[in-house]
């Protein structure tokens, strides 16, 4: 039986896939605070979608609650603004029902890892084909400035006036530990880097988790400056690129070398080490991904950005469809009449 969904998909008019970013802007006025990092993310998403050659009607953006979660209203695509923490679960149902869609989740650090933490880890382990953009501003903003699961230790906030005593999650490690097949980190201030990461996430088959450092100008301004501002960034961040050695520093004068399993900073100018001694990034190396993610809160090491891991394995929705097809092929009679009868039935004439 063809379902009505198939009718809609099969009978729809052919649409152009030549888009400009404008085609993805909804008529709704964007209402984030002036200077909010979310503006940049919205612009980069609209830009990369325009280039993907996927019909616009095939996109769905799903969100929860928080500043980030207003995102779907600003996209001229299908979308659901859900309830707090549940975006990934809503998106999972949508993707399983409609594997033909490109389903994106827009969420924040509180929405995704506190109230929604359970959905995050389980969607990651199932490898549901979702692109999860987690705007990390290390604070609850829409509720006006409370501690979030990524707020740094010691930080005073509205709900931690004497300093935060909750150790923060490292989102990349959490995603890797949960089995996410694609894990990356980028930040609001570098449009080119973000576009590159988003494009890779968009094309990933399976669960893609992208942590985006997003500056909150009101409640946590400058939280990421050390790693993202032009004057300090090159000394305190390292960009991961597949197949390339990990080099950083204002003059590209430092690198990361593995000492056993421990990453250490080495100088490239003191004559002891050369580029050949450095750690070379490999997105397919699942052990390395953990080591790199674990550099995150180590103050002796630069903060890593880029794709920690990108591996392939069948997605949940593919496995669902495959299992249905296999079960059908092994069942001689798949009529509902037969199902209704069950194994023990009798006839009265």
């Amino acid at each position: 039986m063809t379902t009505l969904i198939e009718n809609v998909i099969q009978n729809k008019p052919i649409t152009t896939v030549e888009y400009t970013p404008k085609d993805f802007k909804s008529p709704l006025e964007v209402r984030w605070c002036s200077g909010c990092g979310s503006y940049s993310i919205l612009a980069q998403v609209q830009k990369i979608l325009a280039g993907l050659k996927i019909p616009r009607e095939q996109y769905a953006f799903v969100s929860g609650i928080g500043c980030s979660s207003r995102f779907p209203y600003y996209m001229q695509t299908y979308g659901i603004h859900g309830i707090h923490g549940r975006a990934i679960a809503i998106a999972t149902g949508l993707k399983v029902a409609r594997p033909d869609l490109s389903v994106w989740v827009v969420t924040g650090d509180g929405d995704c890892m506190s109230i929604g933490g359970n959905h995050l880890i389980h969607a990651a382990r199932r490898n549901v084909g979702l692109k999860v953009l987690m705007f990390n501003n290390e604070i609850y903003s829409l509720t006006k400035g409370q501690v979030s699961p990524t707020t740094q230790i010691g930080q005073p906030t509205k709900s931690s006036p004497f300093g935060n005593i909750d150790y923060p999650f490292n989102p990349a490690s959490l995603a890797l530990g949960s089995g996410a097949t694609f894990v990356a980190r980028t930040f609001d201030r570098d449009p080119k880097h973000m576009q590159g990461i988003l494009e890779r996430a968009a094309k990933h088959n399976g669960f893609a988790f992208v942590e985006i450092y997003t500056n909150c100008v009101i409640y946590n301004d400058g939280a990421f400056d050390l790693y993202t501002a032009a004057d300090s960034r090159r000394e305190h961040s390292v960009m991961l690129e597949h197949g390339k050695p990990l080099i950083f520093g204002a003059n590209n004068d430092k690198g990361i070398r593995l000492d056993g399993f421990t990453p250490t900073v080495v100088s490239l100018t003191d004559g002891k080490w050369s580029v050949d001694d450095l750690l070379v990034h490999d997105e397919k190396d699942t052990t390395l991904a953990f080591i790199l993610a674990n550099m995150t809160y180590n103050s002796n090491l630069p903060r890593p950005f880029g794709i920690f891991q990108s591996i392939e394995k069948p997605s949940y929705e593919e496995l669902t469809i495959r299992q249905i097809e296999e079960a059908k092929s092994k069942t001689p009679d798949t009529s509902i009449e037969t199902l209704l009868k069950g194994e023990d039935y009798w006839e009265i004439k």
Binding site: R86, G93, V96, R98, I121, H122, A327
Partner: peptide
């Protein structure tokens, strides 16, 4: 074999919210 899809969700909330997502689809 009859084409039915299901998700044994991670919790009760995931059960209903995934159904809401599927309904939107």
């Amino acid at each position: 074999p009859y084409g039915v899809r299901h998700l044994q969700a991670e919790d009760e909330i995931g059960g209903i919210t995934s159904a809401i997502g599927a309904a939107y689809g």
